Simulated assay, not measured.
Amino acid sequence: MKTVADALTCAVRMDSVRKTYGEGATAVHALDGVSVELRRGTFTAVMGPSGSGKSTFLHCAAGLDRPTSGRVILGETDLTGLSETKLTELRRERIGFVFQAYNLLDSLTVEQNIVLPLRLAQRPSDPRFLAEVVRSIDLHVPMNRRPSALSGGQRQRVAIARALVTRPDVMFLDEPTGALDSRTARQVLDALRHAVDLWGQTSLMVTHDPFAASYADSVLFLADGRIVDQLPRSAPERIAERMAQLGER
């Protein structure tokens, strides 16, 4: 039985989560009984071959998609029975998202993009914390500039700042460096790692890149909708070797 202490130290828990698309002979089991705990203040990477269930894993863990069966628990909140309205509120107030495509609004300035989640939640913006977030991820651009005038790496750092400014319980990242060159990707990953080390920001990142995964405290490997292996923080070469072994399955 889970204790109060477990709830306080566990940011996200998935209990026997299954996600099935379709029915009968054409059914696809994207997740097949996944059980895992993500501890608070840790950075976890999720890797696996194409079609292994990585995106479904992230979507279910973040409350973007409902499991067919099983439970997803954010802190002490069981997401299973929440209405769509409650899930929307929870995602807005307790979860941060960073995607490969940035999803910034060019009609807004950099600062307006960053604080947009706070405005939507009708929460005040703390100028001192905003400045601290911007400084911590090395976002050295004028706050009144539009995203279209920024480089890809700068835009992704704006997206990270937007995710961090709400002080989320968990930050979910879907291929955050997928559209960046290697030098810019390293800068973005440094920023993500710094957020974990500085604020204890719990983060879950789906990636295909062993170099990106090497920044995480642990790497989960998915295959056929199941967790088949886990590595503690490792060099890119070790992670790539394990991925190659999965490809030989």
Rank of each mutant, 00 (worst) to 15 (best):
L222R: 02
V141A: 04
R233Y: 10
A240E: 15
P236F: 11
S50Q: 02
L120R: 07
R155N: 10
D106R: 01
R183D: 08
K54A: 11
S151H: 09
T68N: 04
G200W: 04
R13H: 07
A163W: 10
L204C: 12
E241L: 10
R162E: 14
H29P: 01
D229E: 10
Q230F: 03
L231M: 15
A25T: 12
R193M: 02
D126R: 08
G24N: 12
S50D: 04
S69T: 11
L79C: 06
D65E: 15
R91F: 06
A149S: 13
R242F: 09
T207R: 10
M14E: 06
T85F: 05
R238C: 09
M143T: 00
L118A: 13
Q100E: 05
I137K: 01
S234N: 13
L164I: 08
P142Y: 00
G41P: 07
Q245D: 10
Q187A: 14
A244C: 03
G225T: 09
S148L: 14
T20H: 02
A244S: 14
L222Y: 05
M1I: 12
A185D: 06
D106G: 10
I95K: 00
G22M: 03
A11Y: 06
L116Q: 05
I137N: 02
L246W: 04
R128Q: 15
L130T: 04
L246T: 08
L180Y: 13
L246N: 04
V228P: 01
G41F: 11
E93P: 00
G152H: 12
L82W: 00
L220K: 05
I227D: 07
V4R: 12
C60P: 13
L118W: 14
A244K: 14
V228Y: 01
L79H: 11
V34T: 05
G152R: 09
G24Q: 05
T109V: 03
P210A: 00
V12Q: 01
Y102G: 02
A159I: 07
D78Q: 01
G178P: 03
E241A: 15
S136H: 03
A223N: 13
C10I: 15
M143A: 09
R155C: 12
P232D: 14
P67C: 09
Q156H: 12
A25V: 13
V115T: 15
T26E: 15
I160C: 02
D15M: 13
L189C: 06
A235K: 14
V170N: 13
S148T: 12
H59T: 11
Q156N: 11
V228E: 04
V72W: 05
P232C: 10
G247P: 03
M143Q: 05
G63K: 07
L189V: 02
L64C: 13
